[in-house]
Amino acid sequence: MAFAYPFSAIVGQEEMKRALLIAAVDPRLGGVMVFGDRGTGKSTAVRALSQLLPPIRVVAGCPFNCAPDRAPCPVPCTRKDGRAGSRAVPVPFVDLPLGATEDRVVGSLDLEAALSTGVRRFEPGLLARAHRGFLYIDEVNLLEDHIVDLLLDVAVSGESVVEREGLSVRHAARFQLIGSGNPEEGELRPQLLDRFALSVEVTTPAAIEDRVEIVRRRDAFDRDPQAFVAMWQEADAQVARSIARARRRLERIAVPDEVLALGARLCSELGADGLRGELTLMRAGRALAALGRGESMTGKDLAAVAPMALRHRLRRNPLDETGSSARIARALEGLLSA
């Protein structure tokens, strides 16, 4: 059995970890974009997170990960027999490889069925497999344009419509899009960037001591994964419990009017485009509050999520060297002291 690197053993990268936890608490939030150099533990963190989430219940044998209480499946879920039971499965974690073809992503004709029985049957693609889970795209800025368009469409509508090869299939595909990329290797199209609720920037740890610690831990994991995972089991379990607790509490977290007003003022001050920014601020702040102890979202929660919720939505002035994060920090300071 392969062991995954434990989430709690990741050194530093606090903002990325916080963004991923927020996304785990509120699956409706809509994705995290992680910018950063190669080898900063982006993939490791995302993979590790999916291991921490409580299993979901799906209709047994359903290739679309349909929830039992939402049955019947909205689509010809061909592999499901009438009286299918349900079973618990780990939260789906699907890698979208760079070179993936359209067929692989949306699904295509089931060759086996077509050849052996002459029946047209739909073979679900990666989008179907990612339903209710995570769709992870490494190097999302290098993805082919036509695949990006396709993803955008599905991410907005929450369902995938396939009309090809004489097939006509419509199935739910709601997933958390987790992207990673290195801005040095090509910018991301703004339309796609806007789809991600949160964006974080990770950098190579500057302190030598941190790097040494990363190498030591990874080396220990390489040599004896089982012992290493066991060593971090309790810490990981604690994170898992806090996610589960925050999920239960999420709906009860109140958002006071003054916090909402603060968010609105912040967005207008920064000229962040659209309402999506405000909505994300509110949702992410609430999820953060749920992870903490309080009963309602505070200005502090808002300030903590503002950089990751707004950083990628600011209209950029190419001649202004000031980073988005610095602009957000400045605006926040002005508003909070006022």
Binding site: R38, T204, R211, I214, R218
Partner: peptide, 18 residues
């Protein structure tokens, strides 16, 4: 030692000393 040697050669990512 490998982390320091990497840094001296301008290689910041922990991937390389690892």
């Amino acid at each position: 030692a490998l982390c320091r040697a990497s840094a001296a050669l301008g290689l910041d990512s922990p991937r390389w000393p690892l």
